[in-house]
Design a protein around this nucleic acid. Structure first.
Lengths: 141, 141
DNA sequence: TTGCGTGCAAAGGTTTTGCATGGCA
DNA sequence: TGCCATGCAAAACCTTTGCACGCAA
């Protein structure tokens, strides 16, 4: 397990602070880039991607693949105990595109079931449920 | 609901046949393209994408987003009763990349739970579970 | 001093769009 | 006839890589 050492630099701190204090739930690399550019900082897209990768490796951020061809989304996970998104499942509406957060302990039974019966360790931080949300289901009747 | 009429053309039939008779579980647009090119046909990437879209709209194929930046995967779903993939869940190992098919009725409780408690109609054909498969879990100890 | 971090430019891979031509209904 | 399908080329889009320079340890 030779994990690369990540230096503690300006951008690492700034991006982590952005996720802690400023960012809404789901943020793309482009969002991060624009935020700093609009506030007068000169940051490169390359740096954004590389630091996001670092923060994901750390466990500081979670990365979600919402849709192929669409940008990846990142979310603050915190360090250990203060992690707000640790038990959070995500539902994506295929019709309106809305992304719903589910903080539901019952869904953890999915993890248990997959683990016990299928030897599969589910990663809820990367798994997105696709379907139709309540509003769109009613509208479609 | 003004769905576009899809003509019944050579490529529509050929691609559907390919999925029925030739294709393995998961196929990318590039796979389809290469198959026909290697067999001496002149097909365009554009046509592949457009017909795949049509077939997905029909419900003939299912489309999976395995990973952002990677090509989307398609799978034959069949028409109505003879649909082989209808109750099929997918697990993707984050380490080795293996894609696992689960034909498990117990997992349908997830759908019930989401539907009853969260007003969310899960689409198992588009949802991919991320995690770690048995082989990789053991190897990582 | 060493080696990662940074920014720019360029490349890579997937998917979409414009346009003229051809085929289905 | 009218509209969709097709193929090529080009563009759009997200992400990664090469390179030279700067900065942390």
């Amino acid at each position: 397990m030779s994990r690369k050492l990540n230096y503690k630099t300006k951008w690492r701190d700034e991006i982590e602070r952005f996720f802690q204090e400023v960012a809404k739930d789901h943020v793309t690399a482009a969002d991060v880039f624009e935020y700093f550019r609009e506030n007068g900082y000169t940051i490169g897209m390359t740096t954004v991607y590389r630091q996001l990768d670092n923060l994901v490796s750390d466990g500081t951020l979670n990365k979600y693949t919402i849709e192929a061809g669409s940008p990846a989304c990142y979310e603050y996970a915190g360090h250990g105990a203060d992690a707000p998104g640790c038990s959070c499942f995500h539902c994506k509406c295929e019709i309106c595109g809305r992304l719903i957060h589910l903080h539901c302990d019952e869904l953890k039974m999915i993890q248990s079931h997959l683990s016990e019966h299928h030897n599969f360790t589910l990663n809820p931080l990367r798994t997105v449920f696709y379907g139709v949300c309540d509003a769109c289901r009613e509208a479609r009747v």
